[in-house]
Amino acid sequence: MLRLSNFGPHARMLGMVILWGASWPAGRIVAQAMPPLAAASLRFVLALLVLLPWMYHSGGFTQLKNWSTKRWMGMALGGFVGVFGYASLFLSGLQYLPAGKAALLITLNPVVTLLLAVWLFKERLNAIIGLGMAMAFCGAIIVISQGNPLHILQGQLGLGEWLILGCVACWVGYTLLGRWVMNGVDALSATAVTASFGALFLIVASLLVEGPAGVQAALHSGWSAWGALLFLAFGATALAYAWFFDGVKRLGAGAAAGYITLVPVVGVAVSALLLHEALDTSLLIGGTLAVLGTAIMQRGRR
């Protein structure tokens, strides 16, 4: 039974689910109107207008002078992989792939992360976790291949699928890296610092690859694209992370992880509602398997 004192944190976690789920159709709108690197740069520069003052207010800046060179290098690497890599591939992939399908492919994140954690950190598996991993993997394969896994063996995956799978690889790398170099650093400071490094990398890459014309094109995009970009920066990045951190602190990591399993469901629903994306049989069956598998995994890990 939900206690009244916990209603606020649960409500904020549901808000986080909606914001992160809606980031997929918002990203699709941005990707169709702006150069991806310039758009990603603007997203994180804007998000830092919230994250850095928030970090300062919480006292996070005082610990920076005590960080070792190894930690700073780890944060820079985290910014390169988890912010620059993920954000650029996220918007690049959404140029080619429907938002709902892309959101479901991200259910591979916990599967790949846990497999590598077993190898690198000797995490233990059980039958429930194994069942969930198998279901999530099969569901993702159905979504990727549109119901025909032979397409994967025959090399028929499109560029959009490969780019979103690159997102998976980047987020898995960022998660595992966090266990190595971010131990003892609060989540807000880790997010703000890696976002700062990532924004710097994105700006440099945008200028080198897209040139000043890329930023100009982004700045002169329509109101719908800018509305989606502002939502990504302030809603899906700054506010959603604030609510997520609060949920982890008040409800525990297990409960917070359980809410994350709902993000792809919201992503598919909002994409269908706002962008009128079709829900074919393979997407529904594969998506159901992937989300249920992820939920079973979280249950097994508890």
Rank of each mutant, 00 (worst) to 15 (best):
P25Y: 08
N109P: 11
S224G: 15
A257D: 06
F61T: 00
S23L: 07
L49Q: 06
F244D: 03
T281F: 11
G82H: 00
L262Q: 02
G21N: 01
R301L: 05
L64R: 03
V215R: 13
Q95C: 06
G100C: 02
G300S: 13
L64Y: 05
W72I: 01
M297K: 13
R302P: 01
Y96D: 02
L14R: 12
L239D: 08
Q95A: 10
H57D: 03
M13V: 06
N109Y: 08
L239R: 05
L37Y: 13
S58R: 02
F121N: 03
T294A: 12
R3T: 05
H276T: 07
V185Q: 01
F137Y: 14
L4A: 15
A39M: 09
G258A: 03
I129K: 14
I129F: 04
D246C: 03
W243Y: 11
W20F: 06
L208E: 11
L202K: 03
R71M: 08
W223K: 15
A192Y: 00
F244E: 05
W119K: 09
V111M: 00
L114R: 09
G300T: 09
A269M: 15
K122Q: 15
W243I: 12
A102D: 06
F231Y: 08
T113L: 07
H57L: 08
V172A: 00
M297D: 10
W119Y: 06
V266I: 12
A195C: 15
A272T: 15
A255T: 04
P35G: 10
G130M: 14
L94H: 02
R12E: 13
G214E: 10
A256S: 08
A192C: 08
P212V: 10
L52P: 01
L104H: 05
I296K: 12
V263L: 05
V291S: 05
G211A: 06
L46Q: 10
A38M: 08
L150E: 04
A213W: 10
L91Q: 08
T175D: 04
Y56I: 10
A217T: 14
M75K: 02
V215Y: 11
V209T: 11
G60R: 04
M182K: 03
L283S: 10
A26G: 10
G198S: 12
L104Q: 14
R179V: 04
V17F: 09
T294C: 12
A117D: 09
F44S: 09
A272H: 15
A33W: 04
T69G: 03
A253C: 10
I285S: 04
L91G: 00
A225S: 15
G132Q: 03
G27R: 07
Q95T: 01
L251F: 07
T191A: 00
L273Y: 13
G27C: 14
A127P: 02
